[in-house]
Structure formats: structure tokens, C-alpha cells
């Protein structure tokens, strides 16, 4: 037995910050699910990088192949606030047939952990489950991992970077019309 020589893994723990982050992420999910898209947009930093890479089946010794690279390769999303604004305006016109009538969504986040803290950035990791129901029978279930970088602003936060790692290589659904 070597237990006495084994060191405990010390994870950074920020209990007060964690509670505030959890509250923030729950509020953000509420805004999306209640379709308050303009208020959701206010939670995004002007310089946000919103990224969801493609996912591949990769060789064991080539883990670099699993996700497509940001700013270089193809991606499901790799964009900033202006494009997110355009997506919202598209939904809000009543003529974006992929979201007209509007889908129903429920965003759930769990395993929320404050992974790193500096004066200007808070790195938060979580797991998400996004359920989307569209018209009568269409169901989309997205499960995956997310890494967010939050910027403290006053008593709250702005999202500076969101990286979304979906657990699907082929997208099993026809459209990505919801925000993650």
C-alpha cells in the first residue's frame, strides 16, 4: 500500500464565487428558455468568442484530431457578438422558418466548477444538457461539456469566451438554431 505517500489532489475551491457563478449561469439559461434574447445578449462581452468545434473519431495516439481548431478549421460556431446579434434578429422577425414557430428549449447546467481565477478572468467548467422540442414531434437532445471564461463586471459577470464541446461527431439533428 502506498496510500500514505500519495498526495491529495488540491483543487482550487472558491465557495462564494461558485455560488455566484451558479446563479449567473442559471439566470442566463432562464433568459434563453424564456426567449429574452436581447437580455441574454447583454450578458455577453463585446469581445466574446463563441465556439463549438466539430468533433471527430480519432486515433488513440492522435488526440489533437478530436476537435477542429478555433479560428482555423471548420466549426459549428466560431464567431463573435455581431453574428450572435444577427442570429437573434433573424429569429425575431417571424420569417426565420427554422425557428418559426419558435422551438421550446430547456437548458440545464451541472458539474459547475470554478477552475481558475485571476483578477480579470474566471474560468468555469460545466456539463450541459439542452432539450429542444420543435413543432409536434421533433426532439433534439444535446449533451456535452462547456468551458466559459467570465469577466467580472461590478457585481456581475460578462461571458468573454464560451467553448462548447458537443458529444456528437455527426450532428444527429438537422439544425442548430438554439444558443448553448
Amino acid at each position: 500500500m502506498t496510500t500514505e505517500t500519495q498526495e491529495a489532489i488540491a483543487l482550487p475551491f472558491h465557495p462564494e464565487l461558485k455560488v455566484r457563478v451558479e446563479d449567473f449561469l442559471a439566470y442566463e439559461a432562464e433568459l434563453l428558455d424564456e426567449r429574452q434574447f436581447d437580455r441574454w445578449l447583454d450578458l455577453l462581452d463585446d469581445d466574446i468568442h463563441y465556439w463549438m468545434p466539430l468533433v471527430r473519431n480519432f486515433e488513440f495516439n492522435r488526440p489533437q484530431d478530436e476537435y477542429s481548431r478555433a479560428h482555423l478549421d471548420a466549426a459549428w460556431f466560431d464567431e463573435g457578438k455581431q453574428t450572435l446579434l444577427q442570429r437573434i434578429r433573424q429569429i425575431q422577425g417571424g420569417d426565420h422558418w427554422a425557428e418559426e414557430p419558435l422551438s421550446r428549449s430547456t437548458h440545464m447546467t451541472t458539474n459547475i466548477r470554478v477552475a481558475a481565477v485571476t483578477e480579470t478572468q474566471i474560468t468555469v467548467k460545466c456539463r450541459f444538457l439542452l432539450y429542444v422540442n420543435r413543432r409536434e414531434e421533433e426532439v433534439r437532445l444535446f449533451v456535452g461539456k462547456r468551458t466559459d471564461i467570465l469577466r467580472p463586471v461590478g457585481d456581475g459577470f460578462r461571458i468573454l469566451k464560451r467553448s462548447i464541446f458537443l458529444d456528437q461527431s455527426k450532428m444527429l439533428f438537422k439544425n442548430l438554431t438554439t444558443f448553448f
Binding site: M52, A74, A75, W76, F77, D78, E79, T83, Q86, R87, Q90, H96, W97, A98, E99, M171, F173, K174, N175, L176, T177
Partner: peptide, 21 residues
């Protein structure tokens, strides 16, 4: 690349409406 990724596929602001239809 930026233009095309916003245009095409299931996250594309053009082709989403095609796929729906």
C-alpha cells in the same frame, strides 16, 4: 471561412431554413 460557416450547414443562417423546409 467566417462568411461560409455562417452561411452553410445546420448552423448556417441560410441553410437552416432550407433544412426546415
Amino acid at each position: 471561412r467566417n462568411y461560409l460557416l455562417r452561411y452553410t450547414g445546420p448552423a448556417g443562417m441560410v441553410e437552416q431554413d432550407d433544412f426546415e423546409n
